[in-house]
């Protein structure tokens, strides 16, 4: 699913956020990215989400090289990914239902199908009764769950989450992580960046640890590869 070959990312400021990172995440695997603040976790996810491009090395998503993508192809590739970013809020002037339905509308689903899938996704995060509310009237945790519903409503192959439990209480954090694990169990590849070491420890999933842009720990191959068919 995801392959990094000696990926280095240097921002325009000259700051090197990733240095020679190589990794391979197979279809159906789930992993956590950890590391100190500024270690490069978000940067790594942004490269996969085609928000940033590697300065050197190669990043591949489903064997497609992300280094030299044309602008027109990016939207279609992004439709295979569900992205949950802590700091990317929801459009506040649309009700929850509209927010979650957006990916389906973009992809041209039939209205009845949109309604069905949107309700299913909202049900999954336990917000079905809030479908008509505006996001601004929801709590932080509820907003985060709306974001998750929107990221999974179109059944993406890959789920990326950057600090999804950033400012949530431990109970809610555990619930949210459980949602990710549930998705992973039905075959979705999941990559989560998180500070929450205690929670990660509990969950027993492979870890990628970054330190000042270097990948210092990668125990992906010590876990089940997650891919029954052999990977790319």
């Amino acid at each position: 699913m995801i392959e990094f070959h000696n990926v280095t990312k240097r921002y325009e400021s000259g700051f090197q956020a990733l240095s020679n990172v190589s990794l391979q995440l197979n279809d159906g695997q789930m992993a956590f990215i950890t590391g100190h603040s500024g270690a490069g976790k978000s940067t790594l996810l942004k490269i996969i989400a085609m928000i940033e491009k590697p300065t050197r090395g190669q990043a591949l998503l489903n064997r497609i090289n992300l280094n030299n993508l044309s602008r027109q192809r990016i939207p279609f590739l992004r439709r295979n990914i569900g992205i949950i970013f802590q700091d990317h809020q929801l459009p506040f002037d649309r009700p929850v239902f509209e927010n979650v339905a957006l990916p389906l509308q973009i992809q041209g689903y039939r209205p009845q199908e949109i309604a069905k899938r949107t309700r299913a996704a909202l049900d999954k995060v336990g917000l079905l009764q809030k479908e008509k509310s505006l996001p601004i009237t929801l709590s932080g945790g509820e907003q985060q769950r709306v974001g998750i519903a929107r990221a999974v409503v179109h059944k993406p192959m890959l789920l990326l989450a950057d600090e999804p439990t950033g400012n949530l209480d431990p109970m809610l954090s555990r619930e949210i992580m459980q949602i990710f694990i549930d998705f992973n169990q039905v075959g979705v590849t999941v990559l989560v960046a998180s500070h929450d070491l205690r929670l990660i420890e509990e969950l027993d999933k492979p870890r990628l640890t970054l330190n000042a842009g270097k990948l210092i720990l990668n125990d992906l191959d010590q876990y089940d590869s997650g891919d029954q068919y052999g990977s790319s």
Partner: peptide, 18 residues
């Protein structure tokens, strides 16, 4: 005014035309 919304929409795979 819709800056945030545009970014979100791009991230979920909306084309420029959309």
């Amino acid at each position: 005014n819709r800056y945030q919304e545009i970014i979100v929409t791009k991230l979920i795979g909306a084309t420029d035309a959309f």
